Computed example of a mutant assay.
Amino acid sequence: MTGGRKDGRARLTRPEGATPVVVLVRPQMARNIGTTARAMANGGLYDLRIVAPRDGWPQADAYPAASGADVILDDAQVFDTVEAAVADCHRVFATCPRPRHIVIPVRTARAAAEDLREIASRGLRSAVLFGPERAGLENEDMACADTLVRYPLNPEHMSLNLAQAVMILAYEWWTAAEVTPPRALMTNETRVATKGELEMFLNRLVGELDATGFLDNLEKRPGMVRNLRHWFQRGEVTEQELRTLHGVVTELSRGRMRRGRPDVAAPWTEPGADGI
Rank of each mutant, 00 (worst) to 15 (best):
P58L: 11
P53Q: 05
P97E: 03
R117M: 10
A127M: 04
A85S: 11
A120S: 12
Q28P: 06
V51K: 00
L124M: 14
Y63V: 06
A120Y: 01
D55C: 09
D74F: 07
R49T: 07
I72N: 05
A112R: 01
R26K: 13
R122N: 13
P27E: 08
R91W: 11
G44K: 00
R26M: 11
Q28I: 10
D47Q: 09
T81P: 04
A39D: 05
R107D: 14
N32A: 10
T81A: 10
Y46S: 14
H90L: 08
V82H: 06
R38T: 07
A111P: 03
A113P: 00
A87K: 08
G131E: 02
G34E: 01
P105D: 10
Q59V: 09
I104P: 02
R49H: 12
D61S: 11
S121Y: 06
R122H: 14
R100I: 13
R117H: 15
S67Q: 11
R107A: 12
R125P: 03
T36C: 09
F79G: 06
F93W: 07
V86H: 02
G56K: 02
I119W: 03
A39S: 12
V23N: 02
Q77C: 14
T35M: 13
T108S: 14
S126Q: 03
Q59L: 13
A65D: 06
T95M: 09
A76M: 02
V22A: 06
A60H: 08
A37M: 07
I102V: 12
Q77E: 14
A84P: 04
V103F: 11
